[in-house]
């Protein structure tokens, strides 16, 4: 499953991995509703469908870890600086 709820003693977060499809929107939606303010780990994510991207933006979800591809960080950052961002270590 590309979307899972990871729970440890310290904290819980949602992990999104691989390529997501719009059908997975329901699952992400219910997790975000059940755990308001929960953060999301995108480090293993390869592609986020627009429906899921829109959901993370609307819910103002904190990002615990970014994916390798800086494109996604630009998508979710307000007023990103022009020209490519330096590569991020997830």
């Amino acid at each position: 499953m590309p979307i899972t709820l990871e729970t440890s003693e310290k904290q819980s977060f949602i992990s999104i991995r691989g390529v997501t499809e719009p059908d997975e929107g329901d699952e992400l939606l219910s997790l975000l509703r059940e755990h308001p303010g929960i953060s999301v780990d995108l480090s293993g994510m390869e592609h986020l469908h627009t429906a899921l991207l829109q959901m993370l933006i609307s819910a103002e979800t904190p990002i615990a870890a970014w994916p390798q591809d800086t494109f996604w960080r630009k998508c979710m950052t307000k007023n990103p600086p022009a020209l490519p961002l330096p590569e991020e270590t997830p």
Partner: peptide, 19 residues
């Protein structure tokens, strides 16, 4: 405005700053 996110290198939560 859109979500504004400041990066954090620490493992765990990245802070959200609504600007």
């Amino acid at each position: 405005e859109n979500l504004q996110i400041s990066s954090s290198q620490e493992q765990g939560v990245t802070a959200v700053d609504a600007g």
